[in-house]
Design a protein around this nucleic acid. Structure first.
Lengths: 238, 238
DNA sequence: GAGTGGTCTAGACCACACG
DNA sequence: GTGTGGTCTAGACCACTCA
């Protein structure tokens, strides 16, 4: 009737126990932890069960395991967190707000040398370009300057990006394999300042994102956000 | 002699096969994928082996599994990446550069109301405060304004932060349980601009990070970086 | 050689979803 | 009921490290 705890699975119990003792500092970073055999004896479960608990802790970065040596409490010297780069449309919709996009440019251009190198196409060859301003409840939130490899998404220019977003379209039209991003602070260009309706010296959060399929580069985007209106948040729990 | 591939473990082969077909779009997002039993038959391995491959793909966010129903290709509508917030000292050392820190303040202060609430202490009660400028090869890279809950790290004020970093010290002195961060762009305060030797209107990347132990808040830090000198990078591979 | 982790197996029982 | 995933077991073989 009232038990909200459906009895933790054995592997989860072992995991929880180890996590707990790690969190309370019973095993300082670098410390040798109990071996699988010891935990098997202690919990009365099979080795596979203990192994799974330890393997998952390793995947979470809480322990280091070395074959032939043992399991060690991880030096938590880096705090990793999952940074989620989402489709802006979804993000705004989740807040219960209204998203709309103003398509400033949607065209085919000849790739300048630097861009061509990054997209992996010949200099001067045609690439797709869009410049879109995204607004949340009418307030400009992001200026999206994007170049797309035509080979990866031939139908790109035919899309109506006031109804869907390039991110969303590319996700379903291409097979994403790898993404790379850089987050920095900078000033908007004159055009970006105008489109975002901000002062020319307003600090902006700039995200440059490149995505790749198994072989070719799919797209490269420069996302400029007014610093006063947008930030990236996240959290991390062991 | 020349084989750099020590024969992939069976579970890894299954995983690689599925990853490959997902990447090439053979199973569009939402599509029902082969059941464990089918993969067992196809690869001639035991079910535990197939299960492990699928479980890891799920942990990586590539598939969704529903008990009693099946395994589905995940809707890749969010691209998650591991954002690593590291000890700046390590980061600089890894680049082969020299790190040094200028301790501007290291003191005990009475917590103003807003801060007290965030640290979970009584307003006006003593908290530790440090203001440190970190330099890479002599160039100011980060202004670290940090408040620490004295209950979590009683020895904090006795540290020599020109030799170690607060991050490093707190990692080993406390049991970290949860971390929260926000990344935004903004202007430095007048003091920060002076300490970083930048113009008052230079855009800065500002990271506000809070870390917690199992119960109390340990520390809250405001990390200000000149936008022209520092950014956060990362990448994501399925 | 003793101890460790890395992995696999062939079966088993369960909870769940669906027709 | 049938098919699905969730989990556990008791044993096995291997590769590795260290004394």
């Amino acid at each position: 009737m009232s038990s909200p705890s459906p009895r933790l699975a054995p592997y989860a119990q072992v995991k929880q126990y180890l996590k707990q003792r790690l969190a309370t500092g019973d095993w300082p970073p670098g410390q040798l932890m109990p071996s699988e055999a010891e935990l098997v004896a202690q919990f009365g479960v099979s080795r596979m069960t203990v192994n799974r608990a330890l393997r998952e802790l390793q995947a979470e970065g809480l322990v280091d395991r070395v074959q032939g040596v043992g399991t060690f409490a991880a030096a938590l010297h880096k705090v990793s967190s999952t940074l989620t780069l989402r489709d802006l449309h979804e993000e705004i919709a989740e807040r219960g707000h209204r998203h709309d996009a103003q398509v400033v440019a949607q065209e085919q251009v000849a790739a300048p040398e630097a861009l061509a190198a990054q997209l992996g196409v010949a200099p001067g060859s045609p690439v797709f370009h869009t410049l879109i301003v995204h607004r949340e409840n009418g307030v400009p939130l992001q200026c999206e300057d994007r170049y797309v490899n035509p080979a990866c998404a031939p139908g790109y220019l035919a899309q109506d990006f006031s109804r869907t977003t390039p991110t969303h379209y590319l996700f379903q039209a291409t097979a994403l394999w790898r993404a790379q991003y850089a987050i920095e602070a900078g000033r908007p260009t004159a055009e970006e300042a105008r489109l975002l309706a901000i002062a020319a010296d307003e600090p902006c959060l700039i995200i440059v994102r490149r995505t790749f399929s198994t072989e070719a580069a799919i797209t490269i985007a420069r996302l400029v956000h007014p610093g006063s209106r947008y930030g990236v948040e996240g959290q991390f729990t062991p």
